[in-house]
């Protein structure tokens, strides 16, 4: 019942990562005049069959791309946004033929569902939420959690989707009286939800009852942590965090991801793995995504780095292509592909 203290992943790893672990599958360019902001994958119903499609988001347009063959993609739908720019795509597991997007300037002001009319296949938008939205996450079983407001005036809401993209059912969770930064579902416990807060706490809810079960204070050495993944095993909660505000240290370089173990009963926690950049790599985390045991990050240097959290080291580095820095990285939710994007609309799909 004790845990090894923090191991540091990726430090002397220059010779252990394998550049060939990422193989280019296909690429396409989204010809948009505005800046590329996000990419994602979604299942889309076409003539009664569900197809794995790619969604690209620019500031003023979201596009759906369907596969023509293994190498080519065709744009089939576009949704336009003239008033408020798109900030991010919000993937919702277990839904198909529906895309959620967050809109706003610096902060999220609206969440919209994008879908097509069943009759004429024309694109339509449904406003789901509006206000001072601090955090949003799509959950399994067609649900979406969002927090609106700050501190004591905060509302944490779970919305369940109806077939037409609207909201079918709403439920409130007990707010933690501190501003929520990010949410994460807990694999292994169906009704558990985690949140990270601005004062470095991890909060745990019961989604069924709305109860706030526990607050766990985590190490103050990293502020404003983002929670990417959580799973419960053998009575312990394993949490993958990233630290966008972390400063470089001489000993470890720049920490990008951290695996933390929490005992939810006692609120004790300990770091078990710190994913740092391989020697010779500089930069900090711009954005990251974690799926199962693999974590990918775009670094300020323009390179994408991938860590295997079970092996405990960096397994792939993807330097900028055609002298253009990477700006987006996402794991596909429809297969094991890595989606990598550049600001000008280039999307590259790699097999990992």
């Amino acid at each position: 019942h004790s845990i090894e203290q923090t191991d540091v992943a990726g430090l002397p790893a220059q010779d252990t990562w394998n550049p060939s672990s990422l193989q280019l599958v296909s690429k396409f360019k989204n010809p948009s005049s505005s800046c590329s902001v996000d990419v994602s994958a979604v299942w889309w119903d076409r003539a009664g069959a569900k197809e794995p499609c790619i969604v690209t988001a620019c500031e003023d347009v979201v596009s759906l791309w369907k596969p023509l063959d293994a190498l080519q993609w065709e744009k089939v739908h576009t949704w336009h946004f003239t008033e408020v720019p798109v900030l991010q795509i919000v993937p919702v597991p277990d839904v198909y033929s529906l895309i959620c997007v967050a809109l706003g300037n610096l902060e999220i002001r609206e969440i919209r569902a994008l879908l097509c009319s069943s009759g004429d296949e024309s694109e339509k938008q449904v406003l789901l939420k509006s206000g001072n939205i601090k955090a949003v996450l799509g959950l399994t079983k067609r649900r979406l959690v969002s927090s609106i407001g700050t501190f004591c005036s905060q509302q944490v809401q779970i919305m369940t989707f109806a077939e037409d993209g609207g909201s079918k059912d709403e439920q409130l969770l007990m707010p933690p009286d501190e501003t929520i930064l990010t949410f994460a579902e807990v694999q292994g416990i169906q009704d558990a939800l985690l949140g990270t807060t601005t004062v470095n706490n991890i909060v745990i809810w019961n989604l069924k009852t709305g109860q706030l079960l526990k607050k766990v204070h985590v190490d103050d050495s990293y502020q404003a942590s983002v929670c990417h993944r959580a799973y419960s095993e053998m009575g312990l909660l394993f949490v993958v965090l990233s630290h966008p505000c972390a400063k470089e240290s001489q000993a470890f370089g720049s920490p990008v991801f951290q695996l933390l173990v929490i005992n939810p009963k006692t609120a004790q926690s300990v770091g078990v793995l710190l994913c740092c950049l391989p020697q010779g790599q500089a930069g900090r985390l711009l954005e990251g995504d974690v799926k199962d045991h693999v974590a990918a990050a775009v670094l300020t240097s323009g390179t994408i780095a991938v860590w295997d959290l079970t092996l405990g080291h960096c397994t792939a580095l993807l330097p900028p292509v055609s002298n253009q820095n990477w700006s987006l990285v996402k794991w596909s939710v429809t297969d094991s592909h890595l989606l990598a994007g550049q600001k000008d609309g280039n999307i590259f799909i790699y097999r990992y």
Partner: peptide, 21 residues
């Protein structure tokens, strides 16, 4: 090595029965 205190496999149910509704 770090001691995390007593561990319960049913932590979620136990915390749910203790927390205010």
């Amino acid at each position: 090595r770090a001691d995390l205190g007593p561990i319960s496999l049913n932590w979620f149910e136990e915390l749910s029965s203790e927390a205010p509704l």
